[in-house]
């Protein structure tokens, strides 16, 4: 059986003013194998972040179920760690303090916290900056800390919610390559949300394309580009074909969105 099994998943929200109920995600079914790198793409409002947060155990499910290693997800757990968008680091803690944070919250007892934190900081290439505070770091460096914090707790599944969304294009590319380098070490199952098509292809074994109203899965695309990958793959024929296919998907979504706006 797959490591992550999502069945008939539905998540409803109540609009704060009108009290109207709407579905952020509906009828989502997805299986993810151990060690797979899965990216989730879709235009904004397609429920891709909601789906990720559901796997993280941070939102309540309205219908269906999520199982990880056949255990039902009912809340956050030490088998998962989340890399958030920017601004999720504690600004009053140093890099090391931030990487220790997850370990402290999980009451980690696998040895010296400092040692563990420093190991992770070196892994993401910030060895010299362990005493810096987040406001002294660039956006890319902050996201390295974010990744180190998640990896430190040694999760079975790594969940990433547009972690490079706030970075400039160039830094983003570098971070993507870095992430793959780190991931190649022990190939933990990874779920990565993005709206960037190139990023989605570059990282993935499997791309989940989502659509809106309500958020649902349109297609799951297998990516067979050889690993380990570097920037050269971006210019390959296979990559271009995938890019074209994804673009078509997203363009379709955009035009239907415009249509809705015009009708309304």
């Amino acid at each position: 059986m797959a490591q992550i099994e999502i069945r008939d998943l539905g998540i409803d929200y109540r609009k704060p003013k009108s009290n109207e109920v709407f579905s952020a995600v509906d009828g989502v079914a997805l299986s993810i194998e151990r060690g797979e790198f899965v990216t989730i793409v879709g235009s904004s409002g397609c429920g891709k972040s909601t789906l990720l947060m559901a796997v993280a155990g941070l939102v309540n499910l309205s219908r269906g179920s999520i199982r990880i290693d056949s255990k039902e997800v009912i809340g956050p757990g030490p088998d998962r760690a989340v890399v958030f968008q920017e601004a999720s680091l504690l600004p009053w803690r140093s890099v090391r303090g931030n990487v220790k944070f997850g370990l402290e919250m999980q009451r980690w007892n696998g040895g010296d916290l400092n040692e563990r934190a420093m190991q992770m900081i070196r892994l993401v290439g910030l060895g010299r900056f362990s005493d810096y505070h987040p406001h002294q770091l660039s956006g890319g460096m902050r996201q390295r800390v974010n990744i180190a914090r998640a990896l430190a707790v040694d999760p079975e599944v790594l969940l990433m919610d547009e972690p490079f969304g706030a970075l400039d294009a160039q830094t983003r590319e570098i971070m993507g390559t870095e992430l793959l380098r780190i991931w190649e070490r022990d190939k933990k199952t990874a779920l990565f949300v993005t709206h960037d098509i190139d990023e989605a292809i570059f990282l993935a074994d499997k791309i989940v394309v989502m659509g809106r109203n309500p958020g649902h899965i349109k297609e799951v695309i297998k990516v067979d580009l050889p690993r380990p990958r570097d920037e050269a793959v971006l210019d390959s024929e296979d990559f271009n074909n995938l890019r074209r296919r994804l673009r078509a998907h997203l363009a379709e979504d955009m035009s239907s969105m415009q249509l809705v706006q015009e009708v309304a």
């Binding site: 155990g57 941070l58 958030f84 919250m105």
Partner: peptide, 29 residues
């Protein structure tokens, strides 16, 4: 208290009191 920080703490299994002590309080100093 910064909601994003509280959410990040929860994702690591922080209990409400952990969030008060490690996120809300230092952030309020």
């Amino acid at each position: 208290t910064d909601r994003d920080l509280a959410k990040a703490a929860r994702s690591f299994g922080a209990k409400p009191f952990d969030i008060f002590l490690r996120v809300a309080l230092p952030g309020s100093v």
